[in-house]
């Protein structure tokens, strides 16, 4: 087997193919957020129409672990994950806050919660999407776990499934509580 420059394409291709094949099992829907282990951004959101309490940074820095779930009535996966958010708020024993993201009409969020049930300790209404940008919201739904000091410790992009809830979110919350 003598050397020739015709081997170069094969070597380069093998190197590239190696890179691609190594990447297959990596789940890139886990977007590494720049906000992980950083303090949650400053925000103060008005309540849903007809409710008293809105949502602000003070709520997530009370000294206990909390969950912030970004949802919208126009988002179909949010509807799918909603029963699991309810389960999360029942089983995790931490406050789950809702961030109602970019509604066309403030009433939409109210109607949506009236129809599907309201698991949230408090809901803030982000009509402009400004707070969502501060949180680095990539696509609705997203779920953040925030520790007592107000640091974002985990972020899940996309709908919460039963597997994600049991294998990732609940253990993470339990770990942070200790």
């Amino acid at each position: 087997m003598r050397f020739s420059i015709a081997v170069i394409p094969l070597v380069l291709f093998a190197a590239l193919a190696g890179v691609f094949l190594m990447n297959i099992d990596k789940d890139s829907s886990v977007v590494p957020s720049v906000l992980i282990d950083k303090p949650a951004p400053e925000f103060s959101l008005p309540p849903l129409p007809g409710r008293e309490a809105g949502l602000s940074r003070a709520d997530v820095t009370k000294g206990e672990v909390s969950v912030l779930n970004v949802f919208a009535s126009w988002c179909i996966p949010c509807r799918a994950e909603h029963p699991l958010i309810k389960r999360l708020s029942r089983e995790a024993d931490v406050p789950v806050y809702g961030l109602n993201y970019k509604e066309k009409d403030p009433q939409d969020g109210v109607k949506w919660l009236a129809e599907l049930g309201d698991p949230y300790a408090a809901v803030g209404m982000d009509l402009s999407g400004r707070t969502g940008i501060d949180f680095g919201v990539y696509g609705v739904p997203e779920t953040f776990i925030i520790d007592g000091a107000g640091q974002i410790r985990y972020k899940h992009v996309g709908p919460v499934t039963a597997d994600v809830l049991e294998d990732v979110l609940l253990p993470k919350i339990a770990e942070l509580k200790e």
Partner: peptide
Amino acid sequence: SDLFGPLNETL
């Protein structure tokens, strides 16, 4: 593929 991060159609 989603090799390069999630596709733009997040839904």
